[in-house]
Simulated assay, not measured.
Amino acid sequence: MTEQTYQYYLNQKAVGAHYLEIGNPMKALEHFINAYQTTYGCEDLDLMLELAFLYDEVENPEQAIAIFSQMIEVDPTFPTSYYGLATIYDDHEDYERAIYYYQKTIELDPEYETAHFFLANIYDELGDNQKAIAHYEKTIEIDPSYYYAYINLGCIYEAEDKNLKAYHYFYRAHQVNPADYTALFNLGVACRKLGQVKEAIRYYRKSLGANPQYAFTYLNLALIYKEVFEDYEESIKLYTEGIKYNPQMSVLYYNRACCYALLNEFEKSLDDIQIATQISPSLLDYMKSDDELVQVKKLPRYQAMYQ
C-alpha cells in the first residue's frame, strides 16, 4: 500500500464526514464508499459503521446488512454490528431475527441500553409483557433518564389495569421531562382510572399547555366534563378546540354531536354526525345503536341520509 493510496483513503473519509456534517448523505455515501474500497477502509470499523447506517438511511437495507455482516467478520466482538442488524430487521418487522441480534448485542455488552429498550419494544408488540418489563427495567437501571422506558412501562401496567404502578412510571417520566405532553397525558389517564378526577383534569390541561394539538387530550378531558359533571357546554368547547387543530378527527365531531343532542340542539348534532361519518364510515353502525342520538334519528334530514 503506497502512501498516496493511504492518503486517498484518509481524504475520502474526511470528505465524506464533511458532507455528512452539512446534511448531504448521498455525497457522504459516495466518498465513504471510495474510502471503504481501499485496503484500509474495508477493515475500518468506524468507517464501515458510518457507511452501513448511511445505506440504511437512504433506504438500501441490503447493502447495510452486507456491511454490518462484514463488520462481524472483521471483529466478532463489536456489539454495534449486531445492533445495527437488529435495527434493520426490527424496522422490517422481522422480529425473530431482530430479537436474535439484539440478544447478541446484549451478550457482548450487557449495558447496551438501546438494545434493551428496542428488544423490550418488540416483546411489548408481541404481547410478552414479562420480557418487555424486564428489558424496560434494565434500560432504566442503565440510564435512569430514559424517558420512553418509563412511558412504555406505564402503558403496559395501564393496559393491565394496574393503575397505581402505571401512575408511578408516568410520574417518573414526568420528573425526567416535565415539559413533555406525553407523560402529562398519561398521568391524566391513570388518575381518571384511579377515580382522581380533579387530578386527571389538572394533568390533561397541563398536557394541552405543552401540546395543544393532541386530539386525544381534548377527547378524554371533554368526556370527564360530560360523564362526571354533565357539563355539556364545556365538553363542546373542548371538542371544538380539538377540531380546530384536528379537522379530520372523526371522534371529536361524533362526541360533540352527542353533547349537542343532550342539549336538544339536534340540527347541530346532525351536522356533526354527517361530518364524522363522512370521515369514518365505520361509525355508521355504532351511531345507529347509540341511545344518545335517539331524537336526532327522528329528524327528516337524518332519515333521508341514513335510512
Rank of each mutant, 00 (worst) to 15 (best):
L262I: 00
K138R: 15
Q103N: 07
E59H: 12
Q7I: 12
Y157H: 14
N177I: 05
P300G: 07
K297G: 01
E93T: 10
L208G: 09
D94T: 11
G195C: 06
G209M: 08
L54E: 04
P144W: 00
Q213P: 02
E125Q: 14
D180C: 10
E59N: 14
K162P: 01
A304D: 07
H92D: 08
Y102P: 09
D91K: 15
G242W: 03
N60G: 02
A215Y: 13
K298E: 14
A173W: 02
G209W: 00
G154N: 11
P300D: 10
Y101S: 08
H31E: 11
K244R: 15
F185C: 10
S282M: 06
T182H: 05
A115I: 07
F170V: 03
L20Y: 13
L29D: 02
Y95R: 05
Q248A: 11
E21Y: 12
H135Y: 09
L284E: 14
H135N: 15
A132H: 09
T87P: 00
N211C: 13
E158A: 15
T87A: 12
G16F: 09
A276T: 04
S280K: 09
K268C: 00
G209F: 03
F216K: 15
Y112I: 03
Y6V: 13
N34R: 15
K104C: 03
D128G: 02
T139R: 06
A215K: 10
Y254P: 01
I243W: 04
M26S: 11
Q196F: 12
D109Y: 05
N152M: 11
L126Q: 15
F53V: 06
I72Q: 05
E241K: 12
K13E: 08
P300E: 06
G242D: 07
L20R: 14
G209Y: 00
L85I: 07
H92N: 11
Y167D: 02
L238R: 01
A173I: 03
G154R: 07
I106R: 05
I72V: 13
K13T: 05
L51T: 09
T38D: 06
A166S: 11
E3S: 11
I140C: 08
G242H: 06
Q196V: 00
H174R: 13
L262D: 02
D231A: 04
E233A: 08
R97W: 04
C155V: 13
F117V: 13
L54Q: 11
V58T: 02
K138L: 12
A115G: 10
P25S: 09
Q12V: 01
Y150E: 10
M48T: 13
E3D: 10
P178F: 07
L126G: 07
D75Q: 10
V74W: 04
D91L: 09
I243C: 01
G209C: 03
N11I: 00
Y83F: 15
Q248S: 14
N186M: 02
L262N: 04
Q63G: 03
S250K: 04
R301D: 11
I243K: 05
I99P: 06
S250C: 00
C258R: 14
A200D: 10
Y89Q: 05
G188H: 00
I88Y: 06
H31F: 09
Y102F: 15
Y147W: 01
I156Q: 03
T77F: 07
Y100F: 14
K131P: 01
A52R: 14
Q12R: 10
T277R: 03
T114Y: 01
K244A: 14
I122Q: 06
M1T: 08
Y245R: 00
L47H: 03
F216T: 11
Y239N: 00
A183D: 08
